[in-house]
Design a protein around this nucleic acid. Structure first.
Length: 361
DNA sequence: CGGATTTGACCAAT
DNA sequence: ATTGGTCAAATCCG
């Protein structure tokens, strides 16, 4: 595992290169009255490439950050890592036996990535409670939240015990606009859903799975995105708000085929604080370069209790290439804990080329 | 009967 | 002390 760095790196570059190439092709297609399908397919491939690349990156980084690597530092920074690993608990008399395990779990939980997604259920399409996103969730709690009209539901992956999948999500209905649900995901699914509906969409060259990787993301993402797509088609509006700052894992979001969105997550992921880790260093030092160090881009003020949500109208998308789907995606980066970003103006530059030079080369 | 949900209590973080 | 998140026993549902 450790030494798959090189391999990984190469694959990563491959993916990205491929993505670039595909993008070029797409560009060509745009100038020619080609079939929608081919374009669509290109877009999908591009996205697939990016997602793949992202997963590789994140997988690595998460690894590096998660386990104190021998090579040194494993900065897990942040204020939280209490050195309680010892056995601080002297009082807890109740359920101490399992403490250990739980301890670990909860400890990690802190560093789990989070990202929020505002989902609007367009009236008319009867899609209420479930809000299925492709995964099977098991509700484990519900709580009234201060200042919120509706209670918040807590869900965790059904296969948590079986496969140790730590993914969880919280669903909260908006105060005034009952058609909006705020879904906060935490952690990634590590469970294996054998339901990849994703049409391979063509033999993309050497898309061999990340084989040596852990049983993790690849397909999942896809199936998930598939599902989301479904949702979109049902008339959902999805706004995402990314929170995965302090932790490398990727928000890896299933972006529907609508252009806009994508990728920016990375910047967060590599927020200066997290850097360090050998892996990233190897992968692309330039990437981290302050160049765009553009902290966390746009970002609609988290307006915690305000709830107002209502899709900050100011953020206008360049051109939602898919008008048919009334979907909108917004991603706001917010720092979960530290990394005080100077939020402020949701400037979301349509050009939005997050300096890929360094990245791609 | 097994798995999911409900719900109040417990725990941790602020 | 307050609030959000999780646990787990009781309950519900197929």
């Amino acid at each position: 595992m450790e030494n798959m760095g090189e391999w990984e790196q190469r694959s990563l570059v491959n993916e990205l290169t491929q993505g670039r190439e595909l993008a070029r092709q797409l560009q060509v297609h745009l100038n020619v009255p080609s079939s929608h399908e081919s374009r669509e397919s290109l877009v999908q491939k591009i996205q697939a490439s990016y997602e793949k690349a992202l997963s590789m990156l994140n997988y690595n980084t998460s690894l590096a950050a998660d386990q104190p690597q021998p090579s040194g530092l494993a900065i897990r920074m942040s204020e939280s890592p209490p050195s309680r690993s010892g056995s601080p608990r002297s009082e807890d008399s109740d359920r101490d036996c399992k403490e250990q395990e739980l301890k670990d779990a909860s400890k990690k939980r802190k560093t789990l990535p989070r990202w929020t997604q505002l989902v609007r259920v367009t009236p008319g399409t009867a899609l209420e409670g479930p809000l299925d996103d492709g995964f099977s969730w098991r509700k484990y709690g519900q709580k009234d939240i201060l200042g919120a009209k509706h209670p918040r539901g807590y869900y965790r992956c059904t296969h948590r015990n079986v496969q140790g999948c730590l993914a969880t999500k919280q669903v909260q209905r908006s105060d005034d606009d009952p058609t909006i649900f705020e879904i906060t995901y935490r952690g990634r699914h590590t469970c294996t859903l054998a339901s990849h509906v994703m049409p391979p969409s063509g033999p993309s060259e050497n898309q061999e799975q990340g084989t040596c990787m852990e049983p993790q993301q690849p397909e999942q993402n896809q199936s998930q995105s598939q599902d989301l797509l479904l949702n979109f088609q049902r008339g959902l509006k999805v706004i995402t708000e990314d929170l995965g700052i302090d932790e490398p894992t990727y928000p890896s979001f299933p972006y529907p085929s609508s252009t806009t969105s994508n990728i920016k997550l990375e910047n967060n992921v590599f927020s200066p604080s997290v850097i360090d880790n050998n892996v990233v260093g190897n992968l692309s030092t330039s990437f981290i370069s302050p160049a765009t160090s553009g902290t966390g881009y746009f970002s609609m003020s988290p307006s915690p209790s305000g709830m107002n949500n209502t899709v900050p109208g100011n953020i206008n998308f360049p051109s939602t290439s898919e008008p048919q789907l009334s979907t909108e995606i917004i991603q706001a980066a917010t720092s979960a804990t530290n990394s005080p970003f100077p939020f402020g103006n949701p400037e979301f530059d349509p050009n939005f080329t997050f300096d890929n030079h360094g990245f791609f080369s």
